[in-house]
Design a protein around this nucleic acid. Sequence first.
DNA 1: CAAATAACAGACCAACTGGTTTGTTCGTTT
DNA 2: AAACGAACAAACCAGTTGGTCTGTTATTTG
Lengths: 202, 202
Amino acid sequence: MTARNPQQTRERLLQTAFQEIHAHGFQGMRVDEVLRRSGLQKGAFYHHFGSKTELAYAVLEEQIKPLLKSVWIEPLADINDPVRDLPKMLESLGSRIPDSMHKHGCPLNNLAQEMAAQDDGFRQRISVIFESWINAFAVVFEQAKKGGYIRNNVDSLAVSRFLIALLEGCIGIFKVEQSPKQWAACHSEIAVYLTTLRPVEN
Amino acid sequence: MTARNPQQTRERLLQTAFQEIHAHGFQGMRVDEVLRRSGLQKGAFYHHFGSKTELAYAVLEEQIKPLLKSVWIEPLADINDPVRDLPKMLESLGSRIPDSMHKHGCPLNNLAQEMAAQDDGFRQRISVIFESWINAFAVVFEQAKKGGYIRNNVDSLAVSRFLIALLEGCIGIFKVEQSPKQWAACHSEIAVYLTTLRPVEN
DNA sequence: CAAATAACAGACCAACTGGTTTGTTCGTTT
DNA sequence: AAACGAACAAACCAGTTGGTCTGTTATTTG
């Protein structure tokens, strides 16, 4: 343990903090517990981060943001016809979600609901991340318009925002009902909603 | 202040605690702050409630549950054709929602997201309340089937659960974006979704 | 290679927090 | 009217928590 590796130490703190925040919320997360699990001391923590709050900001930027990107945004690149492909993506996504997500829900939305009204630093950072998510969806719908898969008068941004609200809402309910099988019922309703985007037949 | 009124004292504690929990979450709510705002002392608090947690349980049962009933469940009684009337109800609801709700979101869902995974006492109580909400919606849809307003093969419970998830999801996003005008865009998408319940034309 | 600095370890602390204890007063019962 | 329990007031407490301070060691720089 005598060998130093500041990048690894920092990353270790971030990862552990991410798990603790996900499990207990920001207010419920304890710095001492992160330290205990990381096998580090206060000195290491406050060398790398100015405060508990700044650690959480870093978790948001360096853990949650990249996770969202790899899990939700990058898979969108494969989608041509969202009405057909989005439900498929949701299904394959649901099958390989780790237990911690089923139990504690979406790390981003958890933090959003807990801290948005408490601390504007959280709110702004979270808002930006949500915006990028919404935009990623909107791009898919704009492409789908060109492909003739959906109506040209669809408000891509509004539909994207609505879809994300809907996803977060479903994930939130699961946390209370604790039955992961509900996911199937939920994304089949999402599929139904998506069909309303189709061009009118003639 | 010499006149005693235990019922009023208890109610006072409950109301203040409700506001504080709504504003800061359960973990962020401070017993001392509730006492300060209530103009009461520790003795009064721990005479009426066994612990901070039991106070929150009481808030759930005696404040949040009745509020949900009057705001969301009772208005459902006036609905015959949900595809037409639910969006109207949402609109009129949106216009008379107090600022605290716009800022802090749904008290029930906040508590659900924060505490469901932390404390099974919370989770169970919240689950029961959600169930009653879902059932109230389902009754509306079952009635609508008889009236021929929606398809007979609609899964009332699944649609109800989905609708509530969707509402909570929308409210959650507002908290981050802090623009109450988004509500209009949101419930117009809800209206769109509801049209999929209509019987097929022939 | 020496000096400066980054990267920690670990003891320490003040403020806070939920909860307890003791005592007092009001209201009701007998 | 005496007794008794409910309804508080208020001081007190022990454990927790985020954060600081001092010291030590590894690493880089001149």
